[in-house]
Amino acid sequence: MHQTTAIHEPVFTGENRARLEDEMARYPTKRAALLPALWIVQQARGWISDQAMGEVAEVLDLTPAYVKGVVTFYTMYHEHPVGTYFIQVCTTSPCNVCGAEDVVQALLQHTGCGDLGATSPDGRYTVIEVECLGACGFATPLLVNDDFIESVTPEGVPALLERYR
């Protein structure tokens, strides 16, 4: 999923270009297509490099500094490569009192990540704590990439990870 080469292969060609144009047609300004454009980059490359930000700036007539300012504001955009499976666990109060921190501990242990935000040595997993995921009645909810999973327990973690090898 990661782009490792230093040379930037343009993102907005072929299908991605078509998707961007479809997004741009939805708004009266080019700038408004910025969040959708960044999503397209992240879906294609796994993260958003400085060069990719430059490309986004160019296609939307913005400055690279402006694009970076927006990327840094929103927590879901990755400015650095992350594990193949990016796991976000809610630990805000409602889930917290239902044992969310135990789920995090189980995930850290079974993925081999060790620390929050660190990627496992095999490059597969990154686990982070996030604030309320809007599913508080289904403690503990988490996201594995784009999969929204509810009611995870510490005991359920090994079986869950089996699905993301």
């Binding site: 939805r26 969040l35 959708p36 960044l38 999503w39 504001f73 929103y74 927590t75 879901m76 955009y77 996030v130 604030e131 309320c132």
Partner: peptide, 12 residues
Amino acid sequence: SRVYLHRGAGAY
């Protein structure tokens, strides 16, 4: 009418 979805990116 035109109706579109706009996806947020993590910010309460």
